[in-house]
Amino acid sequence: MQEYLDMIVSLLPGLWLSILMATVSILIGIPLGFVAGLILNGSNKALRWLTIALVEIFRGFPALLTLYLVYFGLAEIITLDRFAAVVAAFGVTTAAYTAEIFRASIASVPRGQVEAAQALALTKKQITSRVVLPHVLNIAVPPVIGIAIITFQGTALAYAIGAKELLGSAYSIGMINFRVLEPLLVAALLYLLFTSLLAWMEILADRRVARISGTSFDGGAGAARRRQRRQRKTGFDASVLNTPASKITQ
């Protein structure tokens, strides 16, 4: 037992690094994704096509490939330490994933609400910041948490460029002690716990959206699921450990 506790303690710096990498990547990715979402809803055609291309590229590239591209590719041009490479690579990946969420959230602001704001003599800027933005933030939070889960798990790929994040430090501890499996399993458990924490936040956020706007991003699939849970007639109802992270397809 003591042995496992020691193992957890020795993995904590790695876990901390993973969390840090994920947080910074998300903090880079969300604003970029939001701007991309604005552009995708905008009227500037050239900018829109450029954004579509970038989003398709970084969604289509495996995250590992993007990481290599940044870490080895940019190293030719600028000096980049591991951490910077990781957050740059996963920052753009997160941006590409969230762009579509923000695009859809912005597009989903009912026209009538913008018209009502216009009829109340609000300026364009006021309408954006006081009517559109709250709506978008409200509705986009649950799926963005879903992306955050992907980003958090994705930081494990930093192991491939020798970063001592959670997976990397579990592997080295195993190598030092000639017992590979245990530290890996402990690391896996830590990933599992953290992922579950985020998934739980996603569920709470989803409920909040449903409460406030009466609908949610996935067109009420969450509500449908809850309804289904109540209707056990079919024999195929939703289960207890429901992870809406599954809603994010790619």
């Binding site: 798990q153 890996l184 207890v240």
Partner: peptide, 23 residues
């Protein structure tokens, strides 16, 4: 069933591969 889905999804794919291959 739920436990399976939870564990399968909750561990990063790279960690799965390393565990299976090295562990």
């Amino acid at each position: 069933g739920a436990l399976w889905a939870w564990i399968a999804r909750g561990i990063p794919p790279i960690a799965w591969l390393i565990i299976i291959y090295f562990g």
